[in-house]
Design a protein around this nucleic acid. Structure first.
Length: 569
RNA sequence: GGGCCCGUAGCUCAACGGUCAGAGCAGGGCGCUCAUAACGCCUCGGCUGGGGGUUCGAAUCCCUCCGGGCCUACCA
């Protein structure tokens, strides 16, 4: 039994996430966590909401609420949706927690003591009317290059030219529209990532088994131009972790907070402290401090590709730079983007399916199966309703659901609702055990490697093997001439259902529970020996014929949903 | 502009430089009748985006062109 620490990139607080966000981090992280638990390992699976930053403040303002109140409400909403998707976090924390405040300030202090913090005076756009500094992208104006009127201070969306806010003609605040803007001097803390470059490069180079997506993005930032740049880790905002605190080695930082990307990864650690504070665990240090027992922990992070630089460079700089024995990530699984029906998911335009809408249409398992079996691992993937309908109907309803249905109903009709006695295994049953044994080992290999699509394909093949066996054994024919042989066949088939529940549980937690409940079984032991696993349910063991596990999606529904989610939420 | 990823069957995707490029879905045929008109078997389907090169051998490595996507440091 090994120990695994698993974190999912923490979703931003300002709204309900869409299916692309879900499949990019939380869902595959949950798959991995459930699988490892199923194998009997000790797992700590953490996630949280990322609550600081300008967008949170503006979203709260739009909602007419204090930002703390807004974040508390949205955290509850996201927590509820996480439960709806059966995301099995051991704790779902908040980056605004007191634990994260303390820890973020602690890291800043340690980094300063290590000489890795420097102060920089820079000039930022200040909006007098809004009473705040504005990030570049919150300044709008006319592009000096193409004349487009809606250009942002960081880039023109029309001609894609990189801009500085001062380049814009007639600049205005994107928040209020005010043109009363001025450049003001402001002092900020920078993390001297450049000083860590060689060490980070060596570390990345040692990770030969990481996804190309992960290492190529990291190398790009390490080597591009003049190499890894120092990064500002503070901002002129109210909402966040204060930069000026008792014991801080700098002065005059009142009114500033740490940049969200500094404190957000630290929340991975703080979340473990929250987990203890919530009474769910007794010791967070054995997961995070290599001097307190975390030396044998395997730490795996899941994230979308946009998060990779922060997890491969910034956060490791923080961890390593502290000089303290914190656990460093062992494997970073990153994902490409999921597109929606020929374009991108769009929160602002309401294009695509969002987590709340998805659950209002169909139960979690339907979405989990499609999203995971189509996870954007090697390139961007695309959600289409046709594909979704085909996968759900074929894989879940026909191959798995119908198998459960045909076995239990046949048994009920011929032998009653209990595992039938009599007969013995023949060559076909032995061959099935051998075949499934090999497939289960292949499935484990893909799951161990976090090859999500390939694991899903292997699981499906395991389901299909059950239908092949039934077709070849044909107990509905055999029962007429040799009921004892048919009984042995049905006994195997009923045990197949239990085996499939155990194997499918990481992908389909609810369906797995329903299958086990129908069988009246609570033995979730992972099948080390498939032959033995096919004899767990003994003759005479009662069961209940379950309801339909997965219903089919009709053409009418598909057309309806297609129209409903095309845009304008 | 620079960098990275991708391009394989109608669709979604596999394939450490090494049998005849494979699966699922869709299409066609046959079988079965326990089951959610479900299941099984067989079958059709490819100039691996184009062109050059390296090699005994290329989907795979190199060059180039075409097409798609992403990143480019103040959105997170």
């Amino acid at each position: 039994m090994a120990r695994y620490l698993i974190t999912s990139a923490i979703p931003y607080i300002n709204g309900i996430k869409h299916l692309g966000n879900l499949v990019g981090s939380q869902l595959p992280a949950d798959l991995h966590a459930r699988y490892l638990r199923g194998r009997g390992h000790e797992v700590l699976f953490l996630c949280a909401t990322d609550e600081h930053g300008t967008p949170a403040e503006l979203a709260a303002a739009r909602a007419g609420k204090p930002v703390a109140e807004y974040c508390a409400e949205m955290h509850a909403v996201q927590a509820r949706l996480s439960e709806g998707f059966r995301l099995s976090f051991d704790h779902f924390g908040r980056s605004s927690s007191p634990q994260n405040h303390r820890l973020t300030q602690h890291f800043a202090l340690r980094l300063a003591e290590a000489g890795l913090i420097r102060e920089v005076v820079e000039r930022q756009m200040y909006s007098v009317a809004d009473g705040r500094f504005l990030p570049d992208r919150y300044i709008e104006g006319t592009c000096p290059n193409c004349g487009f009127d809606g250009a942002r201070g960081d880039q023109c969306d029309n001609c894609t030219k990189q801009l500085d806010p001062t380049d814009l003609i007639n600049p205005r605040s994107a928040v209020s529209g005010s043109t009363d803007l001025e450049l003001r001097e402001t002092r900020h803390l920078y993390l001297r990532q450049s000083a860590m470059r060689a060490r980070l490069a060596e570390w990345i180079d040692s990770k030969a088994d990481w996804p190309v997506l992960t290492t190529s993005i990291a190398r790009k930032w390490l080597n591009d131009g003049e190499g890894l740049q120092d990064r500002g880790i503070t901002r002129d905002l109210d909402w966040g972790v204060p930069v000026q605190f008792a014991g801080a080695p700098w002065t005059g930082m009142e009114g500033k907070v740490f940049y969200v990307w500094f404190d957000a990864p630290i929340e991975y650690i703080a979340c473990a402290q929250e987990w203890v504070a919530a009474g769910k665990g007794g010791d967070w240090e054995r997961w995070w401090r290599t001097d307190r027992g975390a030396g044998d922990v395997t730490y795996v992070q899941f994230m979308g590709k946009d998060n990779v630089p922060f997890h491969t460079l910034s956060f490791p700089s923080t961890i390593i730079g502290s000089g303290e024995p914190w656990k460093l990530v062992d494997f970073i699984k990153s994902f490409n983007y999921l597109n929606y029906d020929g374009g991108q998911f769009s929160t602002s335009r309401g294009r695509g399916v969002f987590m709340d809408q998805a659950l209002a249409i169909l139960p979690a398992d339907y979405w989990r199966w499609w999203l995971l079996s189509h996870a954007p691992e090697n390139s961007d993937a695309e959600f289409t309703w046709e594909n979704f309908q085909a996968s759900v109907n074929k894989d879940l309803a026909d191959v798995l659901g119908n198998l459960v249905s045909r076995v239990t109903k046949f048994c009920r009709a011929k032998f009653g609702e209990a595992v039938p006695a009599g007969g013995a295994w023949g060559g076909r049953e032995a061959a099935l055990a051998v075949d499934l044994g090999a497939r289960v080992r292949a499935y484990e290999a893909q799951m161990d490697a976090i090859e999500v699509r390939k694991a899903a394909a292997e699981l499906r093949a395991i389901w299909v093997a059950g239908n092949e066996y039934l077709q070849a054994a044909a107990p509905w024919s055999v029962v007429k001439s040799d009921p004892a042989v048919a009984a042995a066949q049905v006994r195997v088939a009923l045990n197949l259902i239990r085996l499939y529940a155990v194997l499918s549980r990481p992908f389909l937690p609810d369906a797995a529970e329903a299958m086990m409940a129908a069988l009246g079984c609570t033995d979730w032991a992972w099948p080390a020996d498939v032959g033995a696993a096919l004899a767990v349910l003994p003759a005479g063991h009662p069961f209940v014929t379950p309801e339909v596990l997965f219903r089919k999606i009709t053409d009418e529904e598909r057309a309806d949903w297609q129209a409903r989610f095309a845009g304008r939420r």
